[in-house]
Structure formats: structure tokens, C-alpha cells
């Protein structure tokens, strides 16, 4: 029983990372119609930005986190302006996908150069508290913060999208860009806001994951992208709460699968789940709302 609880907590921690990434990835897709495979690289570059200021100037956690988030937002905005904005007039989903692959390759190359092809980590005691140790469970500081920030971000993002003007505009543009424009919504403001929120959240996930798993590497974002995509499919594109729940389901399932079935099947379980959902419930657990792409 103790082991089961511990493994569920481990799953919730890693699932929170998947869930947060799924929300950020899903937001771009739902609002702008871009299946942005470069989104994982943005998370990686956010983590690298934070690491660089820690290594170079000894920044503590919060300032480093802010630098990392700012890095991710700036990269997201720049790539959107340079790579995706010119495609909007044509509104070709395949064009977006191919462009995002190109952006991904460029960003990965930048990340590899910045990391000097090494796997790096934040200093071992960079985040040392709170460490929860009881006779029943152990939660590392990185895991603790993933769960807390994950919970806060799903609530915060849901409130932003449902209770604020910009949130309503983002959702309106997601439903119909034409009708929202007729209603006086500025699509460029919505694009900038969506990219900033989404990439900022990707930066948070990148930094917290790299702290929790002692891994600042180019592959960080790739893992998040694959699992985040699966989480969005499982949870559904229509609601950020669904995407987050999908992440939790995948995280817990893969950890329990590794414990009670075999570590060999960790990814098989995750992507098996993805395939099952695509076949039997393509709208995901929480249902899907039909979105259009912003032009």
C-alpha cells in the first residue's frame, strides 16, 4: 500500500509536468490551429535560459525562473512573427506543421549549441525545500513544486480563459476568428497574448521539469511534447482542465505500469492509451470543442 501511494505521487508529479505542457501546447492548437512541434524546444530553451543565469551569475530560483519564462516568451513571439505569421493568410494546416518542424530544427540546434552538446543540471541543492519525508511517502522538492505549480496553473489558466476579457477573446477567436473580428476583437492582440501565455507556461514546465529530473538537455522538450500531445488527446482539446487531467492520467499510468507490469512497457502503455483514445474516444475524456484556426 505504501509503495502504491508513493508511486501514485510520483505519477502525479510527472503527470503535472505533462499536464502543464499539454495545456500550453493545446492552447496554441485550439486558438491558432497550429500543431506546433517546436513547442517542446521552447520549453527546453526556457530551462536553458534559467540555467545560464544560474551558472553565470548565480541567480536564485525566482529570478532564474522569471528569466527562463521571459526567454520562452520572447522566443515564442519571435518565431510566431517570423515563421507562422506569414502563413496565416493562407491558413494551411500542413504549412503550419512543416514550418513548425523547421522552427523545431532551428531551435534544437540553438539549444545544442548553448548546452555545448552536454546534458546539464541545475546545482544539486538549487531547490532544497520543501522536501516531504514521512514514514509513508517521500516527495522531492522538484516533485513538490511540479504538483503545486501544476495545480495553480490549471486553476489560473482556467480563470484567465473563463473570467477575463482577454480569455474570452482567446476563446472567441478559437471558435471563429471571422465572427470575433466582426465583434471587434483584435486578432493580433489575441495571438500575442496566446503565444505569451502558452510559451510562458512552457518555460515554467521546462524549468521545473529540469529541476525535478536533474536534466537540462535538448531531449527535455521532446519528451514533454510527446507526452503532452498524448495528454491533450486523452483529456480533450476543449478545456485546459481536460488537458491537465490527461497529463495526470498518463503520468500515473506510466509509473504504475512500470512498477506493476514492467519498465519495458512504460512508453507502450502511454502511447497505447493514446491510440485507444484516438480510436474509441477521439474527443478525449472531457470532450472537444470545434475550433477554427486564426487567420
Amino acid at each position: 500500500m505504501q509503495l502504491l501511494i508513493q508511486q501514485i505521487l510520483n505519477g502525479v508529479a510527472v503527470g503535472s509536468a505533462y499536464g502543464m505542457f499539454a495545456m500550453s501546447f493545446g492552447l496554441i492548437f485550439a486558438t491558432m490551429g497550429i500543431l506546433n512541434v517546436a513547442h517542446g524546444a521552447i520549453a527546453t530553451l526556457g530551462a536553458i535560459g534559467a540555467l545560464l543565469v544560474v551558472e553565470s551569475w548565480g541567480f536564485p530560483l525566482i529570478p532564474a525562473l522569471l528569466v527562463g519564462i521571459a526567454t520562452a516568451i520572447i522566443i515564442g513571439l519571435v518565431t510566431d512573427r517570423l515563421a507562422f505569421q506569414p502563413l496565416r493568410a493562407r491558413s494551411n494546416p500542413l504549412g503550419y506543421l512543416i514550418t513548425s518542424i523547421g522552427v523545431w530544427i532551428v531551435l534544437i540546434s540553438v539549444a545544442e549549441t548553448l548546452l555545448d552538446h552536454q546534458i546539464k543540471t541545475f546545482p544539486p541543492d538549487f531547490v532544497s525545500q520543501p522536501r516531504i519525508i514521512t514514514s509513508w511517502v517521500y516527495l522531492a522538492p522538484g516533485q513538490f513544486w511540479l504538483i503545486i505549480v501544476g495545480g495553480l496553473s490549471v486553476v489560473g489558466l482556467h480563470l484567465i480563459l473563463s473570467r477575463t476579457t482577454i480569455g474570452v477573446q482567446i476563446r472567441a477567436v478559437g471558435y471563429s476568428e471571422v465572427w470575433s473580428r466582426i465583434s471587434g476583437v483584435s486578432s493580433s492582440t489575441v495571438v500575442l497574448s496566446t503565444v505569451a501565455i502558452s510559451c510562458g507556461l512552457a518555460g515554467v514546465v521546462g524549468i521545473l521539469s529540469s529541476i525535478a529530473f536533474d536534466n537540462v538537455a535538448v531531449q527535455l522538450g521532446e519528451g514533454l511534447l510527446l507526452k503532452g500531445f498524448a495528454a491533450v488527446v486523452v483529456g480533450g482539446f476543449g478545456d485546459v482542465r481536460g488537458a491537465f487531467a490527461g497529463g495526470l492520467i498518463i503520468g500515473v499510468t506510466e509509473v504504475l505500469g512500470a512498477q506493476y507490469i514492467s519498465g519495458d512497457f512504460r512508453d507502450v502503455i502511454t502511447f497505447g492509451l493514446l491510440i485507444l483514445f484516438l480510436i474509441f474516444r477521439p474527443q478525449g475524456i472531457f470532450g472537444e470543442v470545434k475550433f477554427g484556426a486564426i487567420k
Binding site: Q6, A258, R266
Partner: peptide, 20 residues
Amino acid sequence: QVKTAAADTDLSGAASQIIA
């Protein structure tokens, strides 16, 4: 034997299994 994958970065599950 506890099995992990080359791409695994989250090793909390394997560690918990060993600790148990």
C-alpha cells in the same frame, strides 16, 4: 531486476521501487 529506458529522465518510480 528493475528496468528503465535510455530516455527516462524521471527515475522517481524506479527509486521508490528500490527503496521499498
